[in-house]
Amino acid sequence: MEFLKERGPYPDLRVNIGSLVLQNPVMTASGTFGYAREFEPLVNLHRLGAVIVKGISLAPRQGNPPQRIVETACGMLNAIGLQNVGVERFISEKMPYLRGLDVPVIVNILGDTVEEYRQLTERLVGVDGIAAIEVNISCPNVKKGGVAFGADPKMARAVTEAVKTAADVPVMVKLSPNVSDITILARAVEDGGADSVSLINTLIGMAIDLRRRKPVLANVIGGLSGPAIKPVALRMVYQVAGSVSIPVIGIGGIDSAEDALEFILAGASAVQIGTANFINPRVSEEVVEGIAAYVREHDLQSIRELIGALEA
């Protein structure tokens, strides 16, 4: 209350992601925030806009052998291999805690086939405490020679339709940046019924150990994340926001309120913070505070005034 007296009323940071209303535009990105409980000792979870949990598949997955991660210039590569506890254990072991949190929980899902995405979504129907589903389509389609769903507009649309038809909560589709024109994919998932799109997932990269003359990662290639990818992500968010009419969620290298505000100006209704959680577990909460300070200092009615407000 001291806080309110000193600085005036807390600014309006609410944003709408379709029918989903968030108290502020800052979410934690899938795979970088565990199942939220890991961060409980350090973060006031209820201050976040939403929490997105580690990607879930139908069956548990062990993931890739070590080495799975490596630091690169201003970033890191990961090839975790989608290790997760599987949907049944997720519902029985992780959801009871998540549902008790005072923050919307978004469940990230992944699959090998369209059918798997559909079954997974059906399994989540009626599970209490899920605010939305985020669909990771950057996975190889095992029935189509391993080409990522997210690289093929037809497949991306088919996955979206399957999930959307089965789901009882809003569906956010997470786009892969590893394509030549991301706006084509964005429009394909919009046509498939997506309520929003989030982007970007990691950019595919590689690191080599010169001394051993071997790839650093057991998987040879991995996904690049962190500040190194921010300019690419910003450009893609800007392009996608100009080509679809559903809300866009910006992801990629965000580690400050300034970064988040840039994505919002580029057209993002909200943002996700990934790798930065590893370096500063409190970063998401600090970004919320920083955005609030910006809104207050610039006498804005609400953060929504800034969405896509980039001047030409």
């Binding site: 565990g34 890991e38 580690k54 070590p66 799975r68 490596v70 975790i80 590893f278």
Partner: peptide, 17 residues
């Protein structure tokens, strides 16, 4: 030891056999 990103069970990058 292993390589680590988060140190707290969030990134799953520090696996060993």
């Amino acid at each position: 030891e292993s390589v680590m990103a988060c140190g707290m069970g969030a990134c799953l990058g520090c696996n060993v056999d």
